[in-house]
């Protein structure tokens, strides 16, 4: 009798405690989550951007995220939108924000790329593998971005400004290489490459 009473008290306490615990914790308890709320206007909740020209931050390598933010803040990557917001991220806490987005699960893109464009892009992509690796996964730790599953509009715009030399790479040899490579690509080639990489998982 005493045992069953004790058990009843125990389970009642358990039942009362757990919903309370669940209620007290929440998505904002992840370090960086509250700092990233402002970003969701453009980059979507958890960094899964629904906009074609806005990069997906969910699952992004923290090293590459931090490099991108610093480059935007220093004006090395031109973007009237991201220059102020990168300073916000630096102010709010770069490590925590980077860790938050890295933890988020990347959702597949809503827009499916045109398959003919993908085929043409795949043939052209052979020239990009030196830096971005055979599957477009790059080497984010070393500053080579993972291109897979990023929106085509974003990829195409970055290639266009890299081609026009409005966005430079810090390493002079690499900058020279990207200029020579991208010069070969027409705007249709760039669109095809963007379609190809946006379709990769």
């Amino acid at each position: 009798m005493r045992n069953s009473l004790a058990l009843a008290i125990f389970f009642t306490a358990l039942a009362l405690t757990f919903p309370a615990l669940a209620a007290a914790a929440g998505p904002l308890d992840a370090p960086g989550a509250s700092k990233a709320l402002v970003c969701s206007a453009c980059h979507g909740f958890g960094g899964n951007s629904p906009g074609n020209t806005v990069p997906i931050l969910a699952g992004m390598s923290p090293a590459y995220f931090k490099k991108a933010i610093k480059d935007y803040a220093e004006g090395k990557r031109p973007s009237p939108e991201m220059e102020p917001y990168s300073k916000y991220a630096l102010q709010a806490g770069l490590d925590e924000t980077a860790a938050y987005f890295a933890e988020q699960k990347k959702q597949p893109l809503r827009v499916k790329p045109d398959q003919n464009a993908v085929k043409r892009g795949m043939a052209l992509a052979a020239q990009c593998t030196v830096c971005h690796n055979p599957q477009g996964e790059g080497d984010p730790e070393k500053g080579f971005p993972d291109l897979r599953g990023q929106p085509a509009g974003y990829l195409a715009y970055q290639m266009a400004i890299l081609k026009d030399d409005k966005r430079k790479l810090q390493d002079a040899t690499l900058d020279d290489l990207k200029k020579k490579l991208l010069k070969r690509f027409s705007s249709r080639d760039i669109a095809d490459l963007a379609a190809y990489y946006s379709g990769l998982k």
């Binding site: 009362l16 405690t17 309370a20 615990l21 669940a22 209620a23 007290a24 914790a25 929440g26 998505p27 308890d29 992840a30 989550a33 909740f45 958890g46 969910a58 933890e103 988020q104 699960k105």
Partner: peptide
Amino acid sequence: SGIGMAVLGGGGLGGFAA
């Protein structure tokens, strides 16, 4: 949303009264 169960204990008992 990629937030593991690990954070569930994080709120502590403080939430109970509320």
